[in-house]
Amino acid sequence: MNDWSSIQGHEQIKNDLRQLLAEKRLPHALLFTGIEGIGKNLTANVLAKVLFCSGEKEKPCNNCSSCRAFDAKNHPDFYCLEPEGKANNIKIEQIRQMQSQIALSPYLADKRVVIINDAETMNEAAENSLLKTLEEPTGDVVFILVTANKDLLLPTILSRCMKLYFAPLSEDEIKIILKSKYAVNEDKATVIAKLSGGSMKRAISFLDDDNFNLCQNAMDFLSKDLNAKDIWQISDEFSAMDKAKIKQWADFLQMIIRDLLLLQAGADDNLLYNRDKKDVLDKLIVNFSLNRLFNCQNLIENLVKRLSSNADLKLMMQDFMLSWREQK
């Protein structure tokens, strides 16, 4: 049963939402933005549950019919949209189906709530269709758009939403969750919290040894002097992976590049994500000028953005590898 206490950190956002609710000033459309895995979706669900709750005191009460229905994942006034299909995006058909549902009066509560997860994956037709709905609010529907990349959304959609930025979780907050919920020991929790980049989702992924291998793969990639054979071989390997894994690999690359930038600046070793691999970083830094590091950082950021598109994965990776080889 989720409630406000389930949300780790983000005290200011929780207080702001509670105040808006108390003053009955909650807008019809909100945008929760911030990196992946920091509690945006959980907060959206808690807010939806609060809006549905018919309890007379602290909300959510977890006892009323609405709270029970929401916890059982069958609340009739709740609608959640997520990317679907091979393209892993949100299509206009999904938006239209949602629109037909919210056109009906609420059944159990006095509002309907629509959560759109990974809102940046809406295709153009879906965005334009949603925009028309946001421009003509009915008063009994609340939209919560959740995204890790708001810049991929139409400016007109952004302008219709109240934007709430979720900052990355602190290392201490990550450690507390790892130790209390996942029984991770202090030493391992410290390392994972450092690698997590403030994302609980990423921290949890490190409990899987396969993801540690991805991190090592990223370190090995930075050590390579790519030739044509490497480019085609690596591109083939990545084209067989799902985009989430490639995104994670790219995140690891970003962390290593950040560490190398810190080393270039003479920063304290305690600031490094990969401080347990300081000896490897010391060897890598010899091959990376400051200009090359910034160029590589831009390439990785561009790759992450393109992973949200429908571009051919193999061609995308080949283009990335070729551009990477040109950075000297």
Rank of each mutant, 00 (worst) to 15 (best):
P168S: 13
I176G: 10
S159M: 10
I90K: 10
D77E: 00
S205N: 08
E56S: 14
P83K: 01
K229E: 10
Q318A: 10
D210R: 11
S199A: 11
S205W: 06
L169K: 13
L17P: 02
N123F: 13
N63P: 00
R25K: 15
I38W: 09
S308P: 00
G39P: 00
L30I: 08
R306G: 07
K86W: 08
D151A: 13
Q99L: 06
M122E: 14
F238I: 03
A126T: 09
L299M: 08
I300D: 04
F320M: 12
L164M: 11
E93I: 14
E326W: 01
I231N: 10
C61H: 03
W324Y: 11
K59F: 05
A48V: 11
V280Y: 06
S129C: 07
Y273N: 14
K188H: 02
K194V: 04
I246M: 15
K14I: 09
T33N: 11
F70R: 02
N123S: 14
F238D: 09
V50E: 00
K14T: 03
R96I: 03
F221I: 15
L154G: 03
N88K: 10
W4G: 07
D187K: 12
L17T: 05
P168F: 07
A29K: 01
L158H: 11
L207A: 14
F206E: 00
L281K: 02
T190G: 08
A267F: 12
K283A: 15
I90N: 09
G198Q: 05
D269I: 06
I177C: 05
N302G: 15
K243Q: 13
W232M: 11
K111V: 07
D225N: 15
T156N: 00
N270D: 08
R275S: 04
A48S: 06
T33L: 02
N15E: 08
N295C: 07
I90E: 01
E136M: 01
P106S: 01
R325A: 03
I102F: 13
I192G: 08
L26R: 12
L108Q: 15
I95R: 03
A265S: 05
D110A: 14
Q233G: 04
Q97K: 15
G85T: 12
F143V: 05
V113A: 02
E301M: 08
K40C: 02
A103R: 15
E136I: 04
I38F: 09
L152T: 09
D268N: 09
L272W: 05
